[in-house]
Design a protein around this nucleic acid. Structure first.
Length: 379
RNA sequence: GUGGGCGUAGCUCAACUGGUUAGAGUGUCGGGUUGUGGCCCCGAAGGUUGAGGGUUCAAGUCCCUUCGCUCACC
């Protein structure tokens, strides 16, 4: 366990806490949410918007996807992923392990690693845990994630146990590769392990503890948001928190809906990433303080109200639902841009308010008020 | 004017020699979407088969009349 994370304020009535994550590209206040920049860009949200207007301090890219295109050679020539994409703040990379559950990427999985199908030339290639680390070393991200293994939701307990054991074995290999490799572009790259085990508390806890003993900078929780009940996820987060040191930054991977984030924070989560806010924006589902709305619904066609009357983002200050409905229904790209902007603002603003409420020791009441408003369903 | 072709869901089209309750795509209206995908998935509504008459146990389908569109030739 490194000293990359420190807790500042702990809630007196829950596991919620605020703190700071230190990376080679600066400090990130926790709890925070990372927008997903799979190919080095958040879909439909520009870097200037992220930095200047949305105050995003950290995002996550995908090592495997960048490895396929444009390839490591080009990114190394540029001086690493930060320089290639022009991002001077903290940057995580996901190993590509999550793509394990996507049929069109995976040929087969063995103890050696994942045999991926390259979608561009149809070739099959082994991504071993070592290879996954070498790729992320080359990219030079601030935080590299181990290659992990997760079954599809609903598999047997035995399947979850197998994947947890495999994830630990792969974690050992990742740690070894990370220590041996002389990093070209980021000498202070952190390495996080990922605990698996589905909703089985004992498997999760044993997996998390084993990973902790390997000596990662943090143990994250993976494999959520794929079909399990939300209360099961919160229970797992709480159980894992109990057995890991207080200064383990708890990264709950793949989670991004407002209610889930609030409950995860209540149970001790410190960081999140998810394509959910931006993907939902592209699909027309918009977060508002009074619950999610679908902008393509006919009810918004003649509405000159903003998406969210309580939101202070550029879109809500300047545009009506009628306009955004029109852009969305006519496939105008600016519609996707404005909606993605709003959803990203909504989540980053939520995180800001969560941090503030924890620091002022009123997180529970903030959460209660938010949830009450969010379930109004008047939209 | 003469001859041919075509009129079926909002739109584009299916329906073998007449034979269950006229289907599909798209669009419309709902719901889903979480560590690549601008997609995709699920459900619902929507038809006097241009109109009128006839033959038949039975007509979107065959016959007659009529209206509309279209092509060719005068």
């Amino acid at each position: 366990m490194s000293d990359c994370f420190e807790v500042n304020v702990s809630s007196s009535s829950s596991f919620a806490r605020s703190g700071v994550l230190h990376t080679a590209h600066g400090r990130v206040l926790t709890p925070f949410f990372m927008p997903v920049a799979t190919k080095g860009a958040v879909k439909f949200v520009s870097h200037p918007q992220l930095v200047n207007e949305l105050c995003v301090e950290c995002m996550i890219s995908n090592a495997f996807i960048n490895y396929l295109k444009p390839g490591l050679g080009l990114i190394e020539s540029a001086g690493g992923l930060h320089k290639f994409i022009g991002w001077d703040k903290s940057l995580f990379t996901d190993s590509g392990g999550f793509q394990l559950i996507l049929d069109h990427f995976v040929h087969k999985v063995t103890n050696k690693g994942v045999f991926f199908k390259n979608p561009f030339d149809k070739s099959i290639e082994l991504i071993s845990p070592t290879k996954a680390i070498h790729i992320q070393n080359s990219l030079g991200s601030d935080v590299a994630m181990c290659l992990d293994h997760q079954p599809l939701f609903g598999k047997s307990r035995a399947a979850y146990l197998d994947s947890a054991i495999r994830t630990i074995e792969w974690g050992l290999e990742c740690k070894k590769a990370h220590e041996e490799n002389v990093n070209k572009t980021n000498k202070h790259q952190l390495l996080f392990g990922i605990a698996q085990g589905g909703i089985h508390k004992d498997i999760r806890c044993k997996c998390a503890l084993a990973l902790h003993k390997i000596g990662f900078d943090a143990v994250a929780l993976g494999g959520f948001g794929i079909g399990e009940a939300q209360r099961d996820m919160y229970a797992i987060i709480k159980e894992v928190k109990k057995i890991l040191p207080k200064n383990n930054p708890t990264y709950v991977m793949g989670i991004g809906s407002p209610i889930e984030i609030l409950n995860a924070v209540e149970n001790g989560a410190d960081m999140f990433d998810s394509a959910y806010p931006t993907r939902m924006a592209r699909h027309g589902l918009i977060f508002t303080s009074e619950g999610p709305i679908k902008i393509d619904r006919a009810v918004h066609k003649n509405s000159f109200f903003p998406l969210d009357k309580n939101c202070n983002c550029f879109v809500c200050r300047n545009h009506s639902r009628a306009y955004l409905h029109h852009l969305f229904k006519t496939y105008e790209q600016n519609g996707l841009m404005l909606l993605s902007y709003h959803n990203t603002y909504f989540i980053t603003n939520l995180m800001k308010e969560i941090r503030l409420s924890i620091n002022e020791n009123r997180f529970e009441s903030f959460k209660k008020d938010f949830e009450k408003n969010y379930s109004k369903k008047e939209n």
